[in-house]
Amino acid sequence: MAEDKHVMTMLVDNQPGVTSRVTGLFSSKGFNIESICGSPTNDPNVSRITIVTAANPPVIEQIEKQLRKLVNVIKLRSLNGPKSVRRELALICVHAKAEQRAEVLRIVDIFRGKIVDAGLEHFIIEVTGEEAKIQAVLNLLKPIGIKKLARTGMIGLIREPK
């Protein structure tokens, strides 16, 4: 069966050890985490954890059931398809000597990125978007030379009814 990327987001009790219960479940059952992102919500007692995983549909079903079974997981939703918005932020440090600077700026402009740090031989670029967009920027910057990369991992929300 095909392994598809799957984004799931959950509200959890904001307590020590909860993230470890979630990630421990993935490792103990042999599930794979591509990215994980967690932070408190507007309710200080509740955090949101968003995880991207790749697995076939029956395994996804099992992962979601297992997560719902954790006593500290309050609510879990899938974040796939047009009913949700998904974003990731990347900070990309690129080599940028004189002859490449114009090209880098052009790429940043096309993807509506930002230069957040600049030196004689580098730029740090900030881009946000869905995974495909981040990947496209990276593909274009790769030949120029990526020095360092940090990505937040996916976050997302379900759209409200219109």
């Binding site: 050890g17 470890s20 219960r21 421990g24 479940l25 103990s28 006593v71």
Partner: peptide, 14 residues
């Protein structure tokens, strides 16, 4: 012990 038994308890508390 909470860390050690996380995967073999229904739930645990410190």
């Amino acid at each position: 012990i909470v860390g050690i038994t996380r995967s073999c308890t229904k739930h645990n508390y410190l």
